[in-house]
Design a protein around this nucleic acid. Structure first.
Lengths: 136, 136
DNA sequence: CTAGTTGCAAATCATTTGCACTTGC
DNA sequence: GCAAGTGCAAATGATTTGCAACTAG
């Protein structure tokens, strides 16, 4: 099934690409940086260069397999594309990331974009806050 | 008045800081990168180092005078803090940035955060799209 | 076979930092 | 005068790229 996804994207089915997909599938609902993935691969005794990880991530994003987020703080993080769009709430203390969806917010965004004459390509709503555990 | 703002933030009133504020005031409703500001200063024959621009921007952000945004694409951009919060819609073709506010979206965000046990620190809603002129 | 991929090392880009010098208060 | 601020150049961290070796189809 992964093989098919890759081919559909016009990408050869290679070991590094499969390994990266595997990492994402083993860590569902996580937001991984290129570095995270690189380390996970090393830990799994899969020798993939960091440069390759970056290349693969870029290709996967272009293919719509994963999505990239630029939260505050240096590096980008990636996650497997879910069926439906969702937004993020990030704890500024512990960097935990949780997801949520809100139909009303989605609808309003569409309306705003239309009113302003834009054709939506993507959208990102990030709430930065302090989570329950960090507030204790 | 700028002088007062700076002093209130515990910052000495220095030439570079005033110059940077000036740039922001001369370019209202713009979203400037550190590089943009640096170039603008050079153009105005004000010799301020790029490192200083970065330092000043960081301090201004900490002081709440300006806000920083991480849109897609390399560098961060800054703008003078408006009285009220607003969100952004960015054209992925021409990089134009427009602002908007939507009370309903704001309210829903508060509710979502509360439900999930977060105390909001900040939030950013970015819609990426193609603007009217770029679609022609 | 051969175009697409990879790994490595070197390059790039945005941003930060160390340090000797300068300037506001 | 002295702590705070500055400029420059060198350091950093994330990501990209050149290139020769490799591999999937």
């Amino acid at each position: 099934m992964n093989n098919a996804d890759l081919r559909k994207a016009g990408l050869k089915v290679t070991l590094p690409r499969l390994k990266v997909l595997e990492i994402f599938e083993k860590n569902p609902s996580q937001h991984l940086s290129a570095e995270d993935i690189y380390k996970a691969l090393l830990g799994a005794h899969s020798d993939v260069g960091l440069a390759t990880v970056y290349r693969v991530l870029t290709q996967f994003e272009a293919a719509g397999l994963i999505s990239r987020h630029n939260f505050i703080g240096g590096q980008s993080v990636y996650e497997l594309c879910a069926e439906e769009h969702h937004d993020h709430i990030i704890c500024v203390k512990c960097n935990a990331v949780e997801e949520f969806t809100d139909a009303m917010i989605e609808k309003r965004q569409e309306e705003v974009a239309k009113t302003m004459g834009y054709e939506i390509v993507d959208h990102a709503l990030n709430i930065y806050g302090i989570c329950q555990t960090c507030r204790k």
